[in-house]
Design a protein around this nucleic acid. Structure first.
Length: 511
RNA sequence: GCUCCGGUGGUGUAGCCCGGUCAAGCAUAGGGGCCUUUCGAGCCCCAGACCCGGGUUCAAAUCCCGGCCGGAGCACCA
């Protein structure tokens, strides 16, 4: 039989190929209208690009399935949490979600509800007590070092089999303040020989003697992550709890807690973390750089905190699109800033005005030009609008890098002004003469600034977390009218954001 | 060491669950070209990958086994 014929009979109908554009894989067990997801940051620092994934993945799924999205502050370790971080998270997340609505049509671009975990601590005490009464939890007063070792070895300590009444009394004393930090812990009774060590009688409540940013010294005993997160997810109706994959071993612990308490179960979904090539994302690494003054602050444009990126001129839309394209993958991805920059550029290019800025300026005297003269430069390549630059004297600034390599007789065009020929080149001055032929094709076009009316400005170029370059120079007069936060493209240089006006300072976003 | 998770062009990702239309899509970076008093941008084109070895099958990126490599976790932090 000819294979063709066979194929016609035997080929089963296939599902259709994936259409163009990023389509996210379906979420297990998700039904339209019944999905509740959440982002659960700890307010212990300024959110970074890494947090953006933790925000966007559950948010996108919630909106795809027309479900609810919650913002929950996991503030159960007062030692590291600060009030300012709650606000920073709200602010940065808002900007991102609003951008997600604009850019991806995921509406509403806001969380549906905000929950602060620490307000629910009394409820957790109640549940902890229930576990004690059920014989599923006990108070352990072993020192941390011993617990660590015994857990590793799979040994049970003497507190494990205390009667319920003793545990209840010790628990009461924990709450009353009879124990100091580290002296007593409430542990879940599971299996000290479980292959997954995190499952070996994990701690669920401990004492922290530090004031809470919201509650001050109201609480002394705080729930440990596994306990609070599972209880909160269950109680707030979360159907799909996302977390980065280093929490994978905890899935079992959390499921156990919920079952022992008889609470509603939900799906747990892991996603891979991202790292930015060459740039540290962790607070642990960034903090010393901020504190030692190497970085200007947590919004330094050289680091990938969200505020740092915004200040650098990365649009929230670009970050949203970036993660939408990356998807919810479980693989840890190392991404380079080029991709973020490429997306940002595509967003910026059509709508941002062009300006001329001359770094490392060198004077150029033009012979044969009648001044004053008005030069016309296009505001945007696609637009018919022009800006005029009044040139009062036949002297302009051009960039040193353009002067290098110039020799007498060379011709080039000063954008919007004139085509010129080089007469001579000195280190600090170039002598030019108006070309006979003004409409030469294929001639190099460079940017310039008038000597009179040129605006001194500088451009900060982020290189790495501890290095940068500052280019000083002159720009065309219109630069003086820009407002802080405005974006522009400096011709032949790249996209910039006006950071401050005092000394007119731009930050180079990318080329 | 133990436990878990992964390995698709330089990089990231789609496809893998449900084997065929995948001689593998997209993006980014790279190379070339076009545009020219509208740009280091844009537009067009090119090149580039299924970790290795076995097995199952008419057919394997997709299923199975072994190996190699990488990552994460192994806190009374989240």
């Amino acid at each position: 039989m000819p294979p063709e014929a066979l194929k016609e009979i035997a080929t089963p109908p296939k599902r259709e190929r994936k259409p163009q554009g990023r389509v996210w894989p379906p979420l297990e067990g998700a039904e339209e209208g019944n999905v509740v997801t959440r982002v659960a940051p700890e307010p212990n620092g300024y959110p970074t690009l890494g947090h953006a994934k933790g925000l966007l993945v559950p948010f996108i799924y919630a909106r795809i399935y027309k479900g609810k999205f919650l913002l929950r502050f996991e503030d159960t370790n007062p030692r590291v949490e600060r009030l300012e971080f709650y606000d920073a998270i709200r602010e940065e997340f808002s900007r991102l979600l609003e951008a997600a609505e604009r850019e991806l049509g995921l509406s509403p671009g806001k969380w549906d509800e905000e929950i602060i975990e620490s307000y629910h601590i009394p409820k957790m005490y109640e549940l902890a007590e229930r576990l004690i009464k059920q014989g599923d939890a006990y108070v352990c007063t072993c020192p941390a070092e011993k617990v660590r070792q015994w857990r590793r070895e799979g040994r049970e300590c003497e507190h494990r089999d205390q009667p319920v009444e003793v545990n209840l009394e010790l628990w009461e004393r924990m709450l009353e303040g009879d124990f100091k930090e580290g002296e007593a812990h409430l542990r879940l009774k599971t299996d000290m020989r479980h292959p997954n060590i995190t499952m070996r009688d994990p701690g669920i409540c401990r004492i922290v003697e530090a004031p809470h940013p919201i509650h001050g010294d109201r609480f002394r005993v705080y729930p440990v992550y596994d306990f609070s997160v599972s209880v909160m997810d269950s109680l707030t109706g979360v159907t799909h709890a996302f977390r980065s994959k280093e929490f994978e071993p905890h899935v079992e612990v959390q499921r156990t807690i919920i079952r022992k308490l008889g609470l509603r179960e939900y799906h747990m979904v892991q996603f891979g973390r991202i790292t930015v090539e060459g740039i540290p994302l962790s607070k642990r690494y960034i903090r010393p750089l901020v504190e030692s003054g190497i970085l200007e602050g947590w919004d330094d444009p050289r680091i990938p905190t969200l505020r740092g990126l915004f200040r650098r001129g990365i649009l929230p839309e670009a970050i949203v699109r970036f993660f939408h394209e990356l998807g919810p993958s479980k693989v840890d991805a190392t991404v380079n800033m080029d991709m973020l920059a490429a997306i940002n550029r595509k967003l910026l290019d059509p709508k941002v005005p062009r300006y001329m800025f001359v770094p490392d300026p060198v004077r150029a005297v033009i012979e044969g030009i009648d001044t004053p003269v008005e030069a016309r430069v296009q505001i945007h390549p696609d637009s018919k609008e022009y800006r005029t630059i009044v040139v009062e004297e036949p002297i302009v600034y051009i960039s040193k890098s353009d002067v290098e390599g110039l020799k007498a007789g060379d011709e080039f065009r000063l954008r919007g002004l004139a085509t010129v020929r080089v007469r001579s080149v000195n280190p600090d001055e170039v002598s030019l003469i108006l070309s006979q032929e003004q409409k030469i094709k294929g001639v190099k076009i460079i940017q310039w600034a008038p000597l009179k009316g040129g605006v001194p400005a500088r451009v900060f170029i982020p290189l790495s977390p501890y290095s940068y370059e500052m280019l000083g120079g002159y720009g065309e007069p219109a630069l003086a009218e820009m407002r802080e936060g405005d974006m522009a493209q400096m011709l032949r240089m790249g996209f910039v954001r006006l950071d401050k006006r005092k000394p007119l300072t731009f930050i180079l976003s990318h080329r």
